[in-house]
Each structure stands twice: as C-alpha cells, then as structure tokens.
Design a binder for these strands. Sequence first.
DNA 1: GTCTATATCATGATAGAC
DNA 2: GTCTATCATGATATAGAC
Lengths: 217, 217
Amino acid sequence: MGKLFSFAVSIVFMSIETDNNTEQKILEAAEEVFQEKGFDGARMQEIADKANINKGLLHYYFKTKDSLFEAIFSIAFHTMIGQIQSIMSLEISLNERIDRIVDDFMSMLAKNPALPRFVITELNKNPDRFIAKHVNHNTRATFAAFINSVQKEIDAGNIRPVDPRQLFMNMISMIIFPFIGRPMVQVVIGLNNKEFLQLMQERREHIKLFLKQAIKP
Amino acid sequence: MGKLFSFAVSIVFMSIETDNNTEQKILEAAEEVFQEKGFDGARMQEIADKANINKGLLHYYFKTKDSLFEAIFSIAFHTMIGQIQSIMSLEISLNERIDRIVDDFMSMLAKNPALPRFVITELNKNPDRFIAKHVNHNTRATFAAFINSVQKEIDAGNIRPVDPRQLFMNMISMIIFPFIGRPMVQVVIGLNNKEFLQLMQERREHIKLFLKQAIKP
DNA sequence: GTCTATATCATGATAGAC
DNA sequence: GTCTATCATGATATAGAC
C-alpha cells in the first residue's frame, strides 16, 4: 500500500509539473499498450518504443513486467470502482443518483473508452489475486448505503418495488456494455464510427429516461 | 467459407457419433483454453495436455496456433451473432421478442458463461480482420426488420416512442454484461458465487418486466 | 496417426560501459 | 540515468522414426 501511495503522489506531482520525466513517459506508454493489448499481448519492447527509451532503461524503472502492470492496473481498477462508489455514497434521491451516475460515468468512459474492457478482462483472468489486493473494507459498506436509499424510495411509494441489486446491474450494464461490446454492436446495428459516437451521445438522456420510466410506481 | 462449412459438418458428425476422435478432443480442449486465457495467453502445450496428446500431434491437426484459433473463434462468433439474429428475424410482437431474447440468450450464457467475454475481447483486439471475415450480408437486413417491427408498435400506440437502436443496446447490455463483468459485480454488490447465480436466475423475469415497464406508453 | 527430439525465434531480464 | 550487448527461457513449429 505504501508503494501505491507513493506512486499516486508521484502522478499528482507530475501532472502539476510540466516536466515530463522518464517515469511518467513510461507510465503513459504502458497504460496505452496494456489497455490495448492486455497483459499477455503487451510487449516490453513496444512500451519502451512508445516511451522513446530502450528496454534496459525500462527495466531500470520497473524491474519486471508484472510490477509495471500492477502500477497500471491499480490505477485503472480504482478509477472504475471509485467512479461507482463516489456516486453510491452520496446522500441524494434515486432520480438524482441516476442522473449523476449516467453523466459522470459516461463522461469518464468517453475520455477513456478502453478502461472497462481492460479492467474486466484482466479481472476475469485472475479474480482472486486482484480482488484480495485491491478491494478495501469500504466497498461493501458503500453498497449497503445504496440499498437503503432505494428501499426508502420504495417505502415512500416513489418507485415500484424492485430489487436494488438488479437495478444496480441494469444501470452499470447499460452504461458500460456499449463501450466494451462496441465492435459487435456496430456490426449488428450497422453503424460507422461517426454514427456510433452520435448514438452514444444521445444515449445519456435515453438511459436516464429509460431507467426512470422502468421504476415508476 | 468452404473450410468453415466442412468444419461445421464435422462437428455435427462428431456429436452424433459417440466416438471421441482426436480432432474433437483438440477442439474441446482449445475452446476451453482460448476462452479462458485468450489468444495471447493460450499455450499450445496446455491445449495438447488437456486433449491428452503431444504438441507434435496438435500441429499435425492444426498447422498453426492461428488456424486453431480461427476454428474456435468462428464457432463462438457465430453462436453469439446467430443467437441475436435468430430472435431478431422472427415475426412476433415486441413483448414476445423480449421474452424470447431474454430466455434464449440467458440459457445459452448459463451454459457457456465465458463466451461473450471471449468474443468481445478478441473482436476488440482486431475488429477489422474478424468483421470482414465473419459478417455476412444478412446481418444488416435482419436488424432492419427489427427496427420496422418496433416502429409498427410505436405507430400502433402499444409502446412509447423510443429509438429501436437504443432499445436493442439496452436489451443485450442487461443480458450480457453481468456475465462479462461478473467479478466486478460480485465485488461491488458483495455476493458469493451461490448468491450471484441465484440473482442471475431471478434476473430473467426481472429484465422482462423492467424492459416492458420502460417502454409502456 | 502418433510420438520424440530439435530447430528457430521472440521475449523478459541482466551485465556492464559511459 | 541511459545505453548496448547478451543471456536464459519458453513458445511455436518442424523433422523424422515408428
């Protein structure tokens, strides 16, 4: 955890400083290559090339491919989980929560469309290892708060009775899946890249309305 | 295309014959390993071990790793696309279509939970190559029929106005995503394996109701 | 068809000069 | 810190005996 912390600090530091030092160049290159190719498909040579350094120097900064991957995956995983948790834990109504989670999540994914596929693929290849390492004690407490807030709305008659866990799955499924399944979606619907992006833009308001409509009393 | 056809025939033949010959053992082993590890993570040695043969014999049946992968991916891709298309092309009402697509798709995924992640991951790594090779001319026509049928229901006032393409994305997102994102979903909600499977069982009826509720006039 | 042995090559990682 | 050169390993693929 100390390692992660110092790493996060260095990231913040770097984004403040305009100086683009070697470590930062490596991390940017590694993020790109790992997210695109996955751990198994990524090559240290390609990362070195993209960072404009040689393999020797790459191994000087990160002794092994595993340790470099860990640094990249850790940030990606916490970006995903953090996005979910931050919205879950707010003290707002379900309608506001829907608006926030759709807007925030889709803005983040528009900037980093490869993120969910990367996290989910690597998580599937080795669930135990990463979950034990990265999931903290707050994860469950945060979701419990979400369940309570949904139950309150049901009791108040604001929405129809619905399993909060299913509702949660519906929300993140509709938000995340089109990014992960983009090539398949484009093929089946028959969309070029421009049309797909247009549809994703319209999708924000569509999902908000669709969800609210589905849980109306 | 001739290769794929003769291959499909041999699959059918094998499932009729009880005789488990070497090629069939290889394909079963390869499907397992490729779906679990992906192309880059898969090892010919592991496939050979799982099929109880040696690497030399494996290369006798499939000259290259690529050709073996192509055989596996082709079946997987057409299973996914075919599942979607078969329901799209039926002449039934939207409500019946929702019931059918949820039941059929989720039954298939329950038997083969790793399938969508495999297809989508490999498709993302190399979209052009596979789409050019595997998508036929019927793909678009089938979806056009779906759009028409939704539009007819809107015109008849049976459902509220909704973009059929968004509706389609919502359907397949809610069905497929929990299988792909299972580890993340389990962590965030806090479910053990038994609880997750129970929730997925209940999910069929949940999705059907949720969708119909969302498009009610 | 099936096996063992081997060729060939790519990759992660290290050693050592500057 | 950065580079070049090299090692060691492991993976795909082939050759050839049976």
